[in-house]
């Protein structure tokens, strides 16, 4: 059912941590299946220099958060806004059709944290 990449990220999720004093923190949830994902980011000079992800959800959601955290590190925020669900899906080697909500959750959490970061910078 799941690709080896998904299983690997589920068994050894990357960057599972909270970042005290993070530049921005945001959470997203999926009301249908109850999954929640919280992303912590530190941004220096417009670039994600540290990312933490905490997820409570199905293996696909855990893997999506994990693979997203890897993509984000050292990525300029301006480029991260272009990450779409299919990019996360591809990085996971493809999710089963009924698990697409996992990449939606990860991208929702990403957009929320970017929004949080951008609104913090507003005067």
């Amino acid at each position: 059912m799941y690709s080896d990449i998904v299983k690997n990220h589920f068994a050894n999720p990357r960057n599972v941590k909270e970042i005290p004093g993070a530049t921005a923190v945001a959470e997203a949830d999926n009301p249908v299946c109850g999954d929640i994902m919280k992303i912590f980011v530190n941004v220096v000079d417009g670039v994600f220099c540290d990312v933490g992800v905490k997820t409570r959800g199905c293996p696909a959601a855990v893997a999506a958060g994990s693979v997203l955290s890897e993509m984000l590190i050292d990525l300029p925020v301006a480029e991260a806004v272009r990450i779409e669900t299919r990019v996360v899906d591809r990085a996971l080697g493809g999710l089963p059709r009924n698990k697409q909500h996992a990449t939606d959750l990860a991208v929702d959490a990403l957009r929320a944290v970017i929004h949080q970061f951008q609104s913090e910078r507003l005067p």
Binding site: Y2, A11, G34
Partner: peptide, 14 residues
């Protein structure tokens, strides 16, 4: 509490 069933199933499966 504070877990997800399918994640437990896969974790145990591994």
């Amino acid at each position: 509490e504070n877990t997800q069933g399918e994640a437990l199933v896969l974790g145990l499966d591994l």
